[in-house]
Computed example of a mutant assay.
Amino acid sequence: MNGDEQLLRGRVYGHDHDDPDPGPRPGQTYAHLIGGPLDGLLLDVTGWTPKEMDSGAALPTELGQFPGGRALYGPGPDEPRLAGPGVTCRFYHCGDSP
């Protein structure tokens, strides 16, 4: 695991690495990002509709195949989603985009 990967573990995507509390917040809903450059991060999906959840996310990152591009994540087929706060599902890396 390189230094960039160690910085990401247990953090919420979009929280600054200098944030004194970069972890999940009570009452929020998260997808756990699996694989790719953002592996191990949590994505806040609080308030996302089922359609938005099905579409996944294109997340800006400097860590992917295209620095300054986007890492693409989406739910796996038949991936269970729990209701309520906490980590309720997983989004899997499915590619990178410039």
Rank of each mutant, 00 (worst) to 15 (best):
S97F: 02
D4H: 10
D16E: 09
G36I: 06
D96Q: 02
L59S: 02
D18F: 08
C89A: 11
M1F: 09
T61Q: 04
Y92M: 03
G56Y: 00
T46N: 08
P75M: 13
Y73C: 09
A58R: 13
D96G: 02
E52V: 00
E79V: 11
G40L: 10
V12A: 07
P85A: 11
P75H: 01
G86E: 12
P22W: 10
M53H: 04
G86T: 08
D16C: 11
P37Y: 05
G76Q: 12
G36F: 05
G74H: 10
L41D: 09
G3T: 11
L43W: 05
E5S: 06
Y73E: 08
Y30F: 07
H32I: 00
R11S: 06
G84N: 12
G95L: 02
L42G: 04
D44C: 11
L33A: 03
F91S: 07
F66E: 12
P37R: 05
P50T: 01
A58M: 05
D18I: 08
Y30V: 04
F66Y: 15
Q28C: 09
P67R: 15
G56E: 00
T88S: 11
N2M: 09
T49L: 00
S97I: 01
D78I: 04
R70E: 13
A58V: 03
P85C: 01
D78T: 06
H32M: 07
G86R: 09
G10T: 11
Q28I: 01
H15V: 03
G35C: 04
D96M: 02
D96H: 04
T88A: 02
Y30A: 01
S97G: 00
E79W: 06
D54P: 00
G95A: 01
T49I: 03
G3D: 14
H15P: 01
G64I: 13
R9L: 06
L42I: 08
H15I: 02
E62R: 12
P60F: 01
G23T: 04
G10V: 08
L63N: 14
P85T: 10
P98E: 02
L72D: 11
G14E: 08
G64C: 11
T61F: 02
G86N: 12
P77E: 11
G74L: 06
G68E: 12
D16P: 01
G10K: 05
R70M: 10
D4M: 08
P75E: 07
P98Q: 03
P22M: 06
P80D: 03
G40P: 11
G47N: 09
W48Y: 15
E79N: 09
P50A: 00
D21Q: 15
Q65T: 15
G64D: 05
G68D: 12
Y92N: 06
T61P: 07
L41P: 10
P50F: 00
D19A: 09
G76L: 04
A57K: 08
G10W: 02
S97L: 12
